[in-house]
Design a protein around this nucleic acid. Structure first.
Lengths: 209, 209
DNA sequence: GTAATTCGTGACCGCTGGTCATATAATGAC
DNA sequence: GTCATTATATGACCAGCGGTCACGAATTAC
């Protein structure tokens, strides 16, 4: 028998309920000890039902992370093209960091999926989704950097140096923004500006002003 | 009754055995599912004995991480003072990254202790140890940067900008070097050079050569 | 030699993520 | 409207986890 719209609709609604419940619990204080039963209870369904939608607890995390990163990509694509590559880069870097700041509820999800061992356990289809995401982001980033170099605004450097550095800087900054070891006595907005400044400095290094 | 040297010696030897066993297991493939029983077995002792030395499994991780970071600090202090702040900074940044590369067996330990929630569970004395470590490292780093600025080799910038950026860059680079999502098609040694280059570029930005 | 004391031990506990036989309810042929 | 069919929800159940603790072996003190 083919699933009817009625049933399908309810099924999908449940999935959304599970994801919403999981995100709420994962963003709480004791997210490390969130159990499948808690997620099921909050979604108003039985524990077994969760496993009709996700093969494991990890897959719930993976799904939430995917949603988050696709949101980030959309956020990046929203940056307008202009004739000022530096301002564009500033805006993109700042925007991406702000996106993370505004969606702190995904902080623990991101940390969880970046743990070593997570990808080994993940099913192939999810891994492919993440790889596709990486590729799309790489295209977008490379274009921006190359345009800036061609315009003479950024110093000519091997693309790999710049991408490597920007990537490390960005990830480190996100960890700091979200990390629980916030030894830095600085406001998030101010922190983001500092990091953007640092990034642009490195992109322009060697240029005589 | 006071513990005799004989007993104390054996006790300490056991502690070393536990740490060595734990590090071996944590650096393996399925480190996420390492159990206390496995650690005890490999150390050749009973499970209960582990808890005579460490209040929890987390404390074993914390102890290993402390050892690792103190090694890093010693590694930094070994850098010779010279009249060339840029070469000094290059050497320090490169050395610290190489130290991580050479001690990949601590990769999972570092990832584990940087998880949100880890510090909340950790006992006060361990937290103090980590804070002391942070402070010592900050002193060392600030001195190097300020010396470079005073000598006119690095451009004058607020110390917070530089520290912020360098810190984020460094942590991001370590994650990349150790991360399991190694999408970057680049050799570690080459990667380190690129990151060092990126860091120095940002430190010198604005300087006319 | 023997009593006192320390320390290692593994059976045990509460709880977890994940499974599966069963109960339930929506569906469509008549 | 009725009822056989079938997709779906469920929670008792399982193996295994981190952590505890009463007990016994081994060492010390005298």
């Amino acid at each position: 028998m083919v699933a009817t719209p009625r049933k399908l609709q309810e099924f999908e609604r449940r999935e959304a309920d599970i994801l919403a419940a999981a995100l709420e619990l994962f963003s709480g204080d004791n997210w490390e000890s969130v159990t499948v039963v808690q997620i099921a209870d909050r979604a108003g369904i039985g524990k077994g039902t969760v496993y009709k939608h996700f093969a494991s607890k990890d897959e719930i995390y993976a799904r939430l992370a995917l949603d988050f990163f696709y949101g980030l990509l959309r956020c990046c694509h929203r940056i307008q093209d202009s004739n000022d590559p530096e301002a564009e880069m500033r805006s993109a870097f700042r925007g991406a960091l702000q996106y993370h700041r505004e969606h702190q509820e995904y902080s623990n999800v991101r940390q969880y999926v970046f743990r070593a061992g997570f990808w080994e356990r993940l099913s192939k289809s999810y891994i492919e989704s993440f790889e596709k995401l990486d590729a799309e982001f790489a295209i977008w980033a490379n274009q921006r950097i190359e345009r800036g170099m061609d315009a003479g605004v950024f110093s000519k450097q091997p693309l790999v140096t710049v991408r490597t550095g920007l990537d490390a800087l960005f990830n480190g900054a996100v960890s700091q923004l979200w990390g629980n070891r916030c030894w830095m006595e600085i406001e998030p907005d101010e922190y983001i500006e500092q990091v953007v400044e640092f990034a642009i400095n490195s992109l322009k290094a060697g240029q005589v002003e």
